[in-house]
């Protein structure tokens, strides 16, 4: 498909990132998109945590409400999910810094690092639940 812009030059309609139409699902692309999803989803956990902190600053009655929500099944779900998301995003971020340094970019190493991020995030989440 091609249309013409104001300068009269033909422009090709290119697919937007991440080019799902032409990509075969693979570990590297899966771990990459998950980095984006976890990073953006963390806003939910942060918003809940800040609301809880605000309630603690305002009054005991308000804190009782926020604390009840945060320690309910809903709060547990959000914070446990956030714990995994933060560790996944953390390890994937470290991997990104390693990639940015120009290292670990061959397929075998990148896939090994991908598994490291997935397994590592689960291990760290379990450790967080146990310790904290």
């Amino acid at each position: 498909m091609a249309n013409t812009n104001q300068a009269g030059v033909k422009r090709v309609e290119r697919p937007l990132s991440p080019h799902l139409q032409i990509y075969r699902p693979q570990l590297t692309s899966f771990t990459s998109i998950l980095t984006r999803i976890t990073g953006n989803a963390l806003i939910v956990g942060v918003a809940l945590a800040v609301w809880w902190l605000l309630a603690a600053a305002v009054s005991p009655a308000y804190f009782a409400v926020a604390n009840a929500v945060c320690t309910s099944w809903f709060g547990d779900l959000v914070f446990t999910g956030s714990a995994w998301a933060v560790w996944y995003h953390y390890l994937a971020g470290l991997r990104h810094l390693y990639f940015d340094a120009g290292k670990g970019l061959d397929v075998a190493t990148a896939e090994k690092l991908g598994w490291g991020v997935i397994i590592g995030s689960v291990v760290l989440t379990v450790l967080t639940i146990v310790i904290v």
């Binding site: 945590a49 005991p60 804190f63 714990a83 933060v86 971020g93 967080t128 904290v132």
Partner: peptide, 29 residues
């Protein structure tokens, strides 16, 4: 990149602090 490196140090410490505070009573928090 800069904020990621900063957060790499800040976040694990904060998760520990926040995780301990969460679920405590009003005065402790």
């Amino acid at each position: 990149t800069v904020s990621a490196v900063a957060l790499a140090f800040l976040v694990p410490t904060w998760v520990y602090v926040f995780g301990h505070a969460l679920g405590q009573d009003y005065d402790t928090v």
